[in-house]
């Protein structure tokens, strides 16, 4: 067939992705999944607190020696940190830009109000903001110790965690954030599957179920730690 093919030059892959609402959403989905994978590992690691200070602190030390002797002390940990920061920044910037576009696209509201299904969208936006603030607080609390309640001790995470969850506000901040996380992952996981084209009529029911289970396990696993401290199981 002698078809006239279009020969116009197209922008680079990165430009195409970042300039498109569909592409930017894919950036959000991929960065979200990177964070999600990290959180699953993080949650499982946290549960070691139930096996006492010896095991928990040793685990924390191991994280720093991960990859030795190929990697130097803490190299792997820093590599993970760089990837995570990149994911958080990419996620938050695309979330902000896409949300701005969405709000601009519907400036005037209907006079007749309905309880619209923007529930999920609003939860994602507010939940995202809560998670962003939480990440900052969490790092200042347990990684750098800047806002830590007790005397922060480098290399003694077990005691630091117990100190944090011995304050009422430490518990409140954490529980609210984990609730937000559960809701975010529940809609986010399913959303990401659609954004990346992995959903289909036959697969979506299973994807929703996986999202629910993932969100529930993640929230329950993270919440177990402050609950453990509050009930005295961890002290």
């Amino acid at each position: 067939m002698a078809l006239a093919t279009r020969t116009d030059r197209r922008p680079s892959l990165a430009r195409t992705v970042w300039d498109s609402s569909v592409g930017k959403k894919a950036v959000m989905a991929v960065s979200g999944i990177v964070m999600l994978l990290y959180l699953v590992v993080h949650m499982i690691g946290n549960l070691k607190i139930f096996f006492g200070p010896g095991e928990f602190d040793h685990y924390a030390h191991w994280l720093r020696t991960l990859g030795e002797p190929f990697m130097h002390y803490e190299w792997t940990l820093w590599l993970i940190r760089v990837v995570l920061v990149a994911a958080v920044v990419a996620h938050a910037v695309s979330a902000y830009q896409l949300s701005r576009r969405d709000l601009r696209a519907r400036p005037s509201k209907y006079v007749h109000k309905k309880a619209r299904a923007s529930y999920a969208t609003r939860t994602m936006r507010w939940g995202g903001v809560i998670l962003g603030l939480f990440i900052v607080w969490h790092l200042l609390d347990l990684t750098t110790g800047t806002v830590h309640s007790g005397g922060f001790q480098e290399g003694h995470p077990y005691q630091n965690v117990v100190d944090t969850f011995s304050t009422w506000y430490g518990n409140v901040v954490y529980l609210v954030a984990m609730l937000a996380l559960g809701l975010h992952v529940r809609h986010g996981f399913f959303s990401a599957a659609q954004t990346l084209g992995a959903g289909s009529r036959t697969r979506n029911r299973a994807l929703r179920a996986v999202a629910d289970v993932l969100a529930l396990l993640l929230t329950a696993g993270f919440v177990a730690v402050p609950v453990g401290v509050m009930t005295g199981v961890v002290s």
């Binding site: 969405d102 696209a105 999920a120 959303s191």
Partner: peptide
Amino acid sequence: FGGCTLAGE
């Protein structure tokens, strides 16, 4: 136009 947030409306 805005983007999809899977509201389903």
